[in-house]
Design a protein around this nucleic acid. Structure first.
Ligand SMILES: [Mg+2]
Length: 326
DNA sequence: GCGACAG
DNA sequence: ATCTTGTCGC
């Protein structure tokens, strides 16, 4: 990366507090919808989270459900429109755009020797475990791996995954550095530039760390897979377009495997991302670094104690082998 | 108006 | 992401 400058992650708002603040603005006899509250928070993408939040709390506070309803229930009744205060998610969305502008896609120019896969799991609703697995590209072997655990409170909102997962991912990467391991490229479980604002979690990672970073996702957030693929190789490589922008590739590890969707995070070219992905495919759906990080991040989940759960655990492990390819 | 929505 | 049983196919 040029100069290795970075774009610091912004301070994260407490969305629950923000939502409580907004709900409190609705008069006792007023009416609002999940979508209206989401818009007041700064993004209508938050409507689903708002609905979950409201429904969870309306059990203890029935009065809540009478003032906050879905759009269908609201019908044509007049709704409260006087929400005031900062739009927390708008500020975060601005940061995503800034990160997208901050990173570059210039080629690394050299084949990476070490690639670090990073993924996050949730052993409890308020805990995140981030795993980093450092892989030697030439030998396709694991050089080092680690897990860090930390609290999470930022919810999953489509388009805002960065703010839920990036802090834990960065903590894992910093832990790697403290142990004197330095990846040439970081492979993130999620989108890079294949994002509505060209700034997915892998782009955020590239901007915040200055490290060359690529995104490998299991499903598409936006964009279309171009028809007519590459039948010559088994990978079935197809371009992914957002409008007329070529932002990524769809490809698969084996003819039977489901595809993955790759894109640049920052600090390297899309062609290099493609080459690295192909070179790190094995027998599983995900390329080695991300596959191992996914499994390692989930490995610390709390065990259930009843005997029946032990069988369940075994079954789950076996299913995992199939899921790797499906 | 209806469908989509990374993890 | 997480919960979760049985079942089909290579
Ligand atoms: Mg993940």
């Amino acid at each position: 990366m040029s100069g290795c400058s970075t774009l610091p992650l912004p301070s994260l708002p407490d969305l629950s507090s923000e939502l409580m603040r907004l709900v409190a603005q609705v008069p006792p006899d007023g009416l609002t919808t999940y979508g209206d509250l989401a818009r007041a928070l700064g993004s209508r993408n938050a409507a689903i989270w708002v609905s979950q939040w409201i429904r969870e709390r309306s059990a203890m506070e029935p009065e809540l459900a009478s003032r906050v309803v879905d759009k269908l229930t609201a019908g044509s009744r007049p709704r409260f429109t006087g929400f005031s205060g900062p739009h927390a998610l708008q500020r975060l969305e601005d940061w995503l755009r800034a990160a997208a502008k901050f990173v570059d896609e210039r080629p690394l120019g050299r084949a990476p020797k070490l690639v670090a896969g990073i993924d996050v799991a949730y052993p409890a609703p308020d805990r995140a475990t981030a795993a980093a697995v450092l892989v030697d590209v030439r030998t396709k072997t694991v050089v080092h791996e680690l897990v860090v655990e930390r609290p999470v409170d930022f919810p999953y909102i489509s388009g805002f995954l960065t703010f839920r997962e990036l802090p834990a991912m960065m903590a894992a990467c910093e832990s790697l550095a403290k142990q004197a391991y330095a990846p040439d490229v970081v492979m993130i479980d999620g989108q890079g530039r294949l994002h509505p604002h060209r700034g997915g979690v892998a782009t955020g990672f590239a901007a915040a760390t200055g490290l060359p970073t690529m995104g490998v996702a299991k499903s598409l957030l936006c964009g279309q897979v171009e028809k007519g693929g590459d039948a010559s190789t088994g990978a079935m490589i197809q371009r992914v377009l957002v409008g007329d922008e070529h932002l990524g590739f769809s490809l698969r590890a084996t003819p039977k495997a489901q595809p993955v969707y790759i894109s640049v995070g920052g600090g390297l070219s899309l062609d290099e991302v493609l080459g690295i992905t192909l070179s790190l495919f094995t027998t599983t759906r995900l390329p080695l670094p991300t596959h191992r990080a996914d499994r390692l991040s989930k490995s610390t989940r709390r065990e259930r104690l009843d005997p029946a759960a032990i069988l369940s655990r075994i079954r789950q492990f076996e299913e995992r082998i199939d899921a790797d390819l499906a």
